[in-house]
Computed example of a mutant assay.
Amino acid sequence: MGTLTYDSTAIAFDDRLLLHLQIVIVNKLRRRESFAMSWRDAAETGDGRSAIWIDPSIPLFFKYDGSRVPTINREWLALLAESAGSSTGLIVCAEDGSPERAARFFDHERSHRGRTPAPY
């Protein structure tokens, strides 16, 4: 299970899915294109959907748990790239086109809001 960290938000995806997302996202950002990305939430965070606006000026980090590079499915890449170029933005989906859930979703900023800072 890998993690895509975008600004203060970390989203966990299967390594193979994450690699396909990385290729699509990097291709869009190389062209300095901003776009939306949405996914189904992990079961433990509810049955909703989440979305972020991906912009070239915001830090982005891909972390893979496995050491092997997964195989690439060009048809899946084309499906993801097509959605990234549409008005709906990049919709995270499985290889068969069905909605794909994030394994985890964690927003560092939201999780620390309202807490009293620890004394130094």
Rank of each mutant, 00 (worst) to 15 (best):
W39E: 08
L60T: 14
R49W: 11
P70V: 09
A36M: 10
I11T: 04
D47V: 07
N73P: 02
W53E: 13
Y64E: 07
I52P: 11
I52D: 14
Y64T: 07
R16Y: 00
H20C: 01
G46R: 04
T5Q: 15
P56S: 03
I11F: 01
A81N: 06
T5H: 06
G46F: 06
V69H: 06
L21E: 06
L79P: 05
Y64H: 01
D47C: 08
A36L: 10
D55I: 01
A78Q: 12
V26M: 07
A78G: 11
Y6F: 10
F62P: 01
L29K: 03
A78K: 10
T71N: 13
Q22A: 01
R16C: 00
P70A: 14
D7N: 15
L17R: 05
D55F: 07
S57L: 13
S38D: 11
K63H: 15
V24H: 00
E75C: 03
T9H: 01
Q22P: 00
V26Q: 11
E33M: 07
D15E: 09
N73S: 03
L77D: 04
T9Y: 04
D15W: 05
I23E: 00
I23W: 04
L4F: 14
A12T: 12
W53Q: 14
E33N: 10
P59K: 13
I23V: 09
R68I: 01
N73G: 01
P70S: 07
T71R: 09
N73K: 01
T45H: 07
I11K: 02
I54Q: 09
R40K: 15
S8H: 12
H20L: 09
I25N: 03
G66S: 08
D47F: 07
Q22M: 00
K63D: 11
